[in-house]
Simulated scan of single mutants.
Amino acid sequence: MRRTFLLPGLALAALMTVSAPAAEISAAVAANFTKPAEELGKTFTARTGDTVAFSFGATGQLYTQLSQGAPFEVFLAADDKRPALAVQEGFGVAGTVFTYAVGKVVLYSPNIDVTDGAAVLKANAFRHLAVADPRTAPYGAAGMQVLDRLGLTETVTARIVTGENISQALQFIESGNAELGFVALSQVVDKPATQVWRVPAEDYAPIRQDAVLTTAGAGDPAARAFLQFLQGDEGRAIIEKYGYEVK
C-alpha cells in the first residue's frame, strides 16, 4: 500500500498559486534516480517557480553526509532502511516517510548480447563485471544477490570492478573498463533489448526506495510541496516512465 502524508491545512495546489519568493530546495538523491529526478525537478520548477538542487550519490554515503550535518531538506534513498533510520536517529521528520519508487536491477552491456543474461554470466567469458559498492549502494547489493542466486559469487568475484555508486558502475561499462555490469533499469531504459537483461524479480530483494523530509526541511513549505509532487499523478507518471513501479 502506498503511504502518503499531507501538509496540514495547506494543499499543494494552494502552494502553487500563492505568490511568494522562489525557494531552492536541497535534495539528497540516490544515484540511480538521477534522470527522473532531473525531470521531476524541471517540472516542479515549471509548476511552482521553486528550484531543486540535487546531490546525487550512493545512499549510504548520502546518509553519512546527512548524519554529519549536510543541510539536505529532502532525502530520496535507494532503500527503505535509511529514511526510517533518519527518523529514528533524529535527522528525519516522523510521519513523512513514503515509498516513491520500486527499482529494478538489470544486467547491461553495450557490446555483448545479454538477452539471456544468466547464460552470459555462467559462461564467464568476460574480463570485468561492474557492480556498485554493495556496502553503500542498494543496487550493488542487489547485483551481488543475483550472482549468489546463480551460484556464481565465488567464480565471478575476481572479475568484479566496484563503482563508488551506480553511476560510476555505468561509467565503467560505457567506457569499456568493464564489458558488462549490474545497473538500474532507469539508467538504460532506452537501450535495445539485446543490451539489457531484466533480472527476474525473485532473484533479488525488492528495492523499495523511500523518501523522507529531513529536520532541515521541516520548516520549508517548498520542500514539503516537492515531496507531495512526487506522490501526485504527474510525478508518478514521470517516475514510471523510467521503469520504476510506484505504490
Rank of each mutant, 00 (worst) to 15 (best):
R2Q: 15
G9N: 06
T17E: 13
V18L: 14
S19N: 13
A22L: 08
E24T: 15
E24G: 12
A30C: 14
A30S: 15
A31H: 07
N32W: 13
T34P: 05
A37R: 04
A37G: 01
A37C: 06
E38R: 08
K42T: 14
T48F: 07
T51V: 08
V52S: 09
A53Y: 01
G57R: 04
A58Q: 03
T59P: 01
Y63Q: 01
Q65A: 15
Q68D: 14
G69D: 08
A70G: 13
P71L: 09
A78P: 06
A84K: 11
F91C: 00
G92M: 02
G92W: 09
A94V: 00
A94R: 13
T96C: 03
T99R: 05
A101L: 10
S109R: 11
P110G: 05
D113H: 03
T115L: 00
D116E: 10
F126E: 03
H128W: 02
A130E: 05
A132W: 01
G140F: 05
A142N: 11
D148S: 15
D148K: 15
L150A: 13
L150G: 12
I160M: 08
I160L: 03
N165E: 09
Q171S: 15
E174I: 10
L180G: 03
F182T: 00
R198V: 08
R198H: 05
D203P: 06
P206Q: 06
P206F: 03
R208V: 10
T214N: 05
T214F: 04
A216I: 00
G217S: 09
G219N: 11
R224A: 14
G232P: 03
G232N: 15
A237F: 05
I239L: 10
E240K: 15
G243S: 06
Y244H: 08
